[in-house]
Nucleic acid binder design. Structure first.
Lengths: 112, 112
DNA sequence: TCTTATGCATAAGAATTCTATGTATTAAAT
DNA sequence: ATTTAATACATAGAATTCTTATGCATAAGA
C-alpha cells in the first residue's frame, strides 16, 4: 500500500471489491485503477499485490485465466462463487470498521 | 485489535486521538474506553497496546507518569508537544484514508 | 475461596506489507 | 538508433504490526 503508510489489512478487501464491480482484472490493471480512483493517495506495490492475489487464489476466492496481449502475459482474475460471498462479508466488516473509527476519531462525521 | 480482525496501523492513531481529547490516560483505561466507544466492535489486546505505548514513548510522542491507586500501579500517558503535532498529521492521514476507501468501496457514501 | 476485574509486561509466532531485485516486451523519448 | 519509461509478471528478505499465550500482582465480588 505504498507510501501512504496506513492501514494494512485493507488490500484484499480492495481487490475483492474491484473484481466484484469490474468482473475481471489483471494485476497491473488493479494498481492503475486504485491509483486513479484515489487520485494517487493509495499506491499498491507489486510486492504486496501479487502475493495477495496468489493467496486469494489459493483460498479459492479467485479464479485465474491467462491471456496474451501484444505478446505480453496477463493473468486475469475473477471472483469464484465463494469469492462473491466473502466479498459481501469483507465489505460489511470494512463498513463497520470505518464507522467505528469515525466514532472514535471524529464523532461529528456521519455516513449518509 | 482483538477478534474484530481488521486493519493494522490504526492503533497508534486511536491512542493519540484519545490522549488528545482526554489529556492523560493509562493503558487499561484506553482498552475500556475503546470498547465503550465502539460498543465492543474494537477490542484492543494488551499484547498490542503496551508495546505500542512503549514505542510511542520511545519516539518522543508520549510522556509517562507513574501513579499508585489503591496499591495498584498505573502509568499515565500524555502527549508531548511533538506528540500533539503528530496527532494532527495522523488524523489528517486517517481522514484521507477513510475518504479513499469510501471512494473505492462505496462511492455513494460521503462524509458530511 | 474461587473467579473476575484491574493493571502492568513480554515472548513467540503469524500476517501483511515494503524494499529491492529479477525477467521480458513494447512504446516513447532523445 | 539507443536509452528510458511503461507494461506485466514474480520472489526473497526485512520490517511492522498484531495475536496468542503466558506471567506477576492486587482488589473486589460470588
Amino acid at each position: 500500500m505504498g507510501n501512504s503508510k496506513l492501514y494494512k489489512g485493507s488490500l484484499t478487501t480492495i481487490i475483492l471489491k474491484l473484481l466484484e464491480e469490474q468482473g475481471k482484472m489483471y494485476g497491473y490493471e488493479i494498481t492503475q485503477k486504485v491509483k486513479l480512483l484515489t487520485k494517487g493517495e493509495l499506491k499498491i506495490t507489486e510486492g504486496a499485490l501479487y502475493p495477495a492475489l496468489h493467496k486469494l487464489e489459493a483460498e479459492g476466492l479467485l479464479d485465474v485465466e491467462v491471456a496474451k496481449v501484444d505478446n505480453r502475459l496477463r493473468k486475469y482474475y475473477k471472483l469464484t462463487e465463494q469469492g462473491e460471498e466473502e466479498t459481501v462479508n469483507r465489505l460489511a466488516e470494512l463498513e463497520e470498521f470505518i464507522r467505528s473509527m469515525q466514532n472514535l476519531v471524529n464523532p461529528n462525521w456521519s455516513i449518509k
